[in-house]
């Protein structure tokens, strides 16, 4: 492997962001305060957007920021505030038997890691400058071309979700 091919900047960036994401994700599932968890989740989601940029998927990254970091997080904060009188820390956010979750997720992690390393090893992604950047036009052609039907189905799902959320949450 030639050193020039290693793309030091990207790799360092990946490492830092990945570390940040993992730490933040762990905080999301361990922190005792719901609002703090939501804020840690913002970091994970923004980090994911940054990773998408590294994978040269700009449009998805932008959508990630708009939809997730913008809309979904606001929803979470609303949900938290509407259901919890107190915003502060709580003693028991975990199940009584949260212990079994640790071996289960570790087992899954072990299996997946083994399979991934076994399967992909040191296979390299095409360099960003070699591969064609994904123009939004191509993406939209893909969505409104061969994948039009899933797009319609998705629109329908969103409509149903909106109506369903209103029906569920309104007070009668």
């Amino acid at each position: 492997m030639v050193a020039a091919d290693l793309l030091v900047a990207q790799n360092v960036g990946f490492g830092i962001i990945a570390l940040l994401m993992i730490v933040a994700a762990l905080r999301v599932v361990t922190v005792k305060n719901v609002v703090h968890a939501a804020l840690w989740l913002v970091i994970v989601l923004s980090g994911a957007a940054a990773q998408y940029l590294l994978l040269s998927a700009e449009f998805v990254a932008i959508t990630q920021v708009l939809v997730y970091v913008g809309a979904v997080m606001v929803l979470f904060l609303f949900g938290t505030m509407l259901t919890r009188a107190k915003i502060g820390a709580e003693a028991d956010l975990n199940n009584k038997n949260w212990g079994i979750a640790v071996p289960v997720s570790l087992l899954m992690f072990g299996v997946i890691t083994w399979v991934l390393i076994d399967g992909f090893g040191d296979e390299r992604l095409p360099n960003p400058d070699e591969q064609t950047q994904v123009p939004i036009q191509v993406l939209s052609d893909d969505i409104f071309g061969p994948y039009l039907l899933p797009f319609w189905a998705l629109s329908f799902v969103l409509l149903v979700a909106v109506i369903g959320a209103i029906v569920l949450a309104r007070k009668d």
């Binding site: 997720s105 087992l107 899954m108 299996v111 083994w114 076994d118």
Partner: peptide, 13 residues
């Protein structure tokens, strides 16, 4: 469920 999925995947691998 997840444990069973993980073990199933393991067995398949």
């Amino acid at each position: 469920l997840f444990a069973a999925a993980a073990i199933g995947a393991l067995v398949l691998v």
